[in-house]
Structures are given as structure tokens and as C-alpha cells.
Design a protein around this nucleic acid. Sequence first.
RNA 1: GCCCCGAUAGUGUAGUUCGGUCAAUCAUCACGGCCUCUCGAGUCGUGGACUCGGGUUCGAAUCCCGGUCGGGGCACCA
Length: 521
Amino acid sequence: MTEKKVRELPPLKDAIKGKVVTRYAPEPNGEMHLGHAYTAFFAHHYANRYDGTFILRFEDTNPKQAEIKYYEAHRESLEWLGLNPGKEVIVSNDIPIFHEKAEELIKKGQAYTCTCPVEEMRDLRSKMQSCEHAKKKPEAIMKEWNKMLKGEYEEGEIVLRLRGDMQSQNAVMRDPAILMIRKDAHCLQNRKYNVWPLYDFANAIEDKICGVTHVGRSAEFDTRIELQNKIRELLGLLPQPHIFHYARFNVIGSPASKRKIKPLVEEGKVEGWDDIRLVTVKGLKKRGIVPETIKQIALEVGMTTQPTNIDWSLISATNRKLIDLSSNRYFFVPDPVILFVAGLSEKRVKDIPLHPDDPKRGTRKIETGSFFFIPRSDYDKLKKGQEFRLKDLYNVKVINKKADLNSEKDLPKKSAELKNLLKKYPTHLLTEYTDEELKPGPKIQWVIADSLDTIDVQVKVPDVLFINDVYNENSLKIVDGIGEKAIASLKVDDIVQFERFGFVRINRKEENKIFVNQAHK
RNA sequence: GCCCCGAUAGUGUAGUUCGGUCAAUCAUCACGGCCUCUCGAGUCGUGGACUCGGGUUCGAAUCCCGGUCGGGGCACCA
């Protein structure tokens, strides 16, 4: 096996070995998706490369949004991805620090309280005009600030604004609000605080508290660099961290953002955040995509500043190569019909390899009789008189495509089980044994039908969720079929290949039925 | 509307910093051959791209200007 040349990310600017600190900073209000995973991967990757520290930081400064279950969700997903943080930080624990820093700005004359209604503030900002509140005396500002902290204002009544630059081309610089009143209970801090920092303020300071040296994030924050740098500058929090941006990653046909996934979950168009059609980390896991695939694709795509639209085939192909050698092969027949082989009285016992390219994996024994299941799709293609091979067994020839094995005479005595199966699967094919010789021609997948020494299998087969932005009604197919007995002893999370069908991950087991998800062909 | 950012095959990328070695890399994809007791893997081959217009230059994917297209931002969300 030749080692594929691995792409490497560009070096980090001013990176000193041992001193690099990076962070992955999600808001705990939804499951981790591919975009998050890439951000986390890059941060982790660079921290490792320079023997630095990778921090998981929860940006939970909006009590309306933060939910306790999502803290855990991010931790779990990171662990599964193998991106373990060296340190975890919860931003809402640092609210007192933000209050302190805000006060410092007020004392320096760099911030003021403002009671403009939202619309008015927005309007004035777009017109590059200050409001009268900007002219307030320092003592008045400090007085109002203290009232804010004590909870004497309602939400929306007042904010603390930074003295930025009203004439700036960059609209975020025009005296942005940096702290606001929030009265909702926070999932961790409860009602301890009335004043909460907004994103830019919290982020600028928190990166410094954490000692973050290099920040990689998605490009929507491009215009905030100036603001965040200014906040740090005013507070003497220097030097500035290095910030690099990259554009959004899209998978064609799969909504990437929480904003788009949430409604799908709520409308029941998907089965939950971990639906196998979604590119959430849990969805990918459930489908049978391995962490290494996600990392390899992140590396392949890199940190481009142009939006990317990855095709599912890239994910499938990458994943297939990674799991191919480690996935055992099993026999599975989707949508089965029953086949009888005449002219052969003795039973056979075959040793069939678990992997065609790796004999060391060994074999499993399968005892065959005269009754088999074969896929309907193969059955449909067969013609009377045609010869074909039962894969790994022998050759047979079609006698009657529309046989009724219930009434057919000259069949060996049928067990009660078999009689039931014949009724349950009413399409019957009558063939006769010809010979053993392996020759060119169709090879058909089979599972024994003489007894119940098999297992019922249900497969979920995912397809793209959206085609040209329209929800794909057929994005999830349920395929029922029958698998060989060995499948029954597989464990949940095992990834195997059903031959001539595709790679699947074992999702759930019941007493005599197993539920699997198809990752891809 | 205003402000940023970007543009290499269907898709993802390499090359752009420092113009010639680029009739453009690798992968995916599609098609065909070989191999294989899978529709998987492997292997060989074929197909397909420098957004457009102008400029600089002996020479432009690479530098400059303009257009077009795409993405993002302009919150008392993050």
C-alpha cells in the first residue's frame, strides 16, 4: 500500500513552538456540524503542530440561547472526532471580568450608556450620526451603569456603547453596543447577572484571558477584527492575536447551518439532529462516516476564503477508502424473492472469506440447502433458460420464473417455517443445478431460505436532502431484507459491507431484527 | 443601498508571494479496458478548467485597471 501524499496547511504567522494557543468557541445552542468540526480541526491541528494548547470555549453569553445539553453535545462530538481540548473555558463564568473592563472603559471616557430605542440607534448609525447620550457627563454614565448592574432597567431599555468612530466606513465601528440588559435565567448562571456582554466585547477580552495567539474562524466575522482590536487596544490587552478567516463549507444538498437544520428537525423532515442525511457530526457518525474522513476532507479543502461546495461523492470516496480494508463482508438480500434449486439433494457447507483481499480475516461457514433468497432486482433481469451463478456456490439455470413452490410437486418436504416463508415471500423462481465451474456471467447474491437461520435486516438508505434547494421527498429510503446469520452477532457501531449493496453501520438491534444505515455504496 | 472578500474542469484542490520550466497538479466524477466468485477495492486509459474585457511585457493562470458573477457583513444574536 503506497502512502498517499498528505496535504499540509500553511504555517501559522509568528508561531512559536510551545507558545501557540488556539480555541474552538461554539455557542452551546445546537449540535456540532461539519462547519464547526472544521474550525475545531484547524485549531486542534495547529495547536498540535506547534506543541501548543487547544482550548474548548463555550460562548454562552446569551441566556436565551445557551442550553445545558449542548455543552455536552460539543464535548462528545469533539471526543469522537479525536480533537480533545487541553483546556475548557466557560465564558459565562467571566461575567464579572467583563463588568470590570466595561467600567474601565467608562472611566477612560471610551464608553457611554445609551437609552435610544433600537430602531433609532440603528437609523442614526446608518446615517453616521451620534445621539445626545454620547455627550453625557462621566458621572451620569457611571450612575446609570451602576443602576444597570443592580437590575434597575428592563431589557432593551439601556445599553453600554463603545465610543468608536461614527464616520467609519465599517459600520460595526459606529459606537456599537457592547453590553446589554438580559433578564432571562441562564442555564449555568441562573439570574446572577443583569448585564451581559455582546459578542465582540466578550470575544475580544476572552481571547486575551485565554491567552489565545491564533484565531481561525469563518469569514462572517471579517469586519469585526477592527472592532475587537480596538477594544483590546483601549484596554491595553496587547499584543493582538493573529486572526485568519476562511469561507463557509457547504456540502451540496445538505444544509450546513444550525439556522437551516433547526426547522427541518422541528417540521419532522428529518429524524432529529443526528439524522443520517445531515452533516452534523452525530449524523455523520450514525451514518457510518469515520472521523478520519472528516479530517482528511478538512485538510483537502484547506482554509480557502472562497465558499466551497463539496460533493457527497468526495465524502463517500474518502470514507470508503478508509473503511474498505477493515470492513468484513456479509451476505444480504434486499427486497427478497425465493429461489429453489432442483437436482441437488445434499446439503453443502461453504467457508466464505470475510474479506476478499485479506485472507487473514478468516471465513464463516454457511450451510446451504435448496431454498434461497435473492434480490428482486436480480430476479427481474433473469430470463427463462438463463444460466447464472449463486455467488461463491455453483451455477443454476432458470426453469420457471413464475413458479408457485407451494403447489410444486417433487420438492423436498417443507418445514413449517419454510411454508410460512413461501407465503410471506410470494415471488418464486424455479431453477436447476447445472455445474460448479466458475465462468463469466452474472453472479447473484443469496441468503439461505431453508430455515430461519438468518436475520431480518432493515436498512436506511440516505440520499441528498435538497435538490436545487427543494426538499427531496425521497431522501430516505427504507429497505427491508434478509441477512445471513453472522450479521446477528455484529455489534452496534460496527461498520461492514453488505456485498453488492454497500457499506453499512449497525445502528440498533432487536431480538430477531437488526437496523443498519447505509453510509454509501 | 453601502462596505468587505473571492473567482483554476460537474465538484474539491495544486500552481498566483518572486511572470517563462503550466498546451496547468492530485483527487472526486463520467466512460471504456484489465483484474476480481461484490455493483467494493486495485490497475490502465479517455474526458473535462485558468470568469470576461483591456493594459504592462519578448512572454501572463500569475502583475495592473474595469466589468460580470459568487459569498459575507451593515443586531440591544453568536
